[in-house]
Simulated scan of single mutants.
Amino acid sequence: MTSIKEQAAISRLLSFLQEWDDAGKVTRNHILNNFIQTHQSKTSPELKQEFCQGSILFLVRLILP
């Protein structure tokens, strides 16, 4: 079972990924720059917790066209 905190993290992740998927190149550039600014001081475990182990889904989107 997932906790309320985990469910909220999953919801935020899915919303973030949907925004990315719906965006064009310019908007994706803004999203990526905003992501970097927002998370630049976070550690890997903090990011994993925030994205509920779904960070790989975002990284795949960065690599693939």
Rank of each mutant, 00 (worst) to 15 (best):
M1V: 06
T2G: 00
T2D: 12
T2I: 04
I4N: 07
I4Y: 06
I4C: 01
I4F: 11
K5P: 00
E6A: 10
E6T: 06
Q7W: 13
Q7D: 09
Q7E: 14
A8T: 11
A9R: 09
I10D: 13
I10G: 00
I10V: 07
S11W: 04
S11H: 12
R12K: 10
R12A: 10
R12H: 06
L13Q: 03
L14G: 04
S15E: 12
S15G: 15
F16C: 05
F16W: 02
F16I: 00
L17C: 08
L17T: 06
Q18W: 07
Q18M: 03
E19C: 08
W20H: 09
D21R: 04
D21W: 01
D21Q: 05
D22R: 13
D22V: 01
D22E: 15
D22H: 12
G24D: 15
V26F: 11
V26T: 13
V26N: 05
T27E: 15
T27G: 03
T27W: 01
T27A: 12
R28H: 06
H30L: 08
H30F: 05
H30C: 06
I31Q: 05
L32P: 00
N33Y: 01
F35A: 07
F35N: 07
Q37S: 04
Q37W: 05
T38N: 12
T38Y: 07
T38R: 15
H39L: 02
H39T: 08
K42F: 15
K42N: 08
K42G: 00
T43M: 09
T43Y: 12
T43N: 09
P45S: 14
P45Y: 09
E46V: 01
L47A: 03
L47V: 08
Q49P: 03
Q49H: 10
Q49D: 12
E50S: 07
F51N: 01
F51V: 00
F51S: 03
F51L: 05
C52L: 02
C52K: 12
C52G: 10
C52P: 00
Q53S: 15
Q53K: 13
G54A: 06
G54H: 09
G54D: 13
S55R: 07
S55K: 11
F58Y: 15
L59G: 04
L59R: 10
V60G: 08
V60F: 15
L62H: 14
I63P: 02
L64A: 05
P65Q: 13
P65M: 10
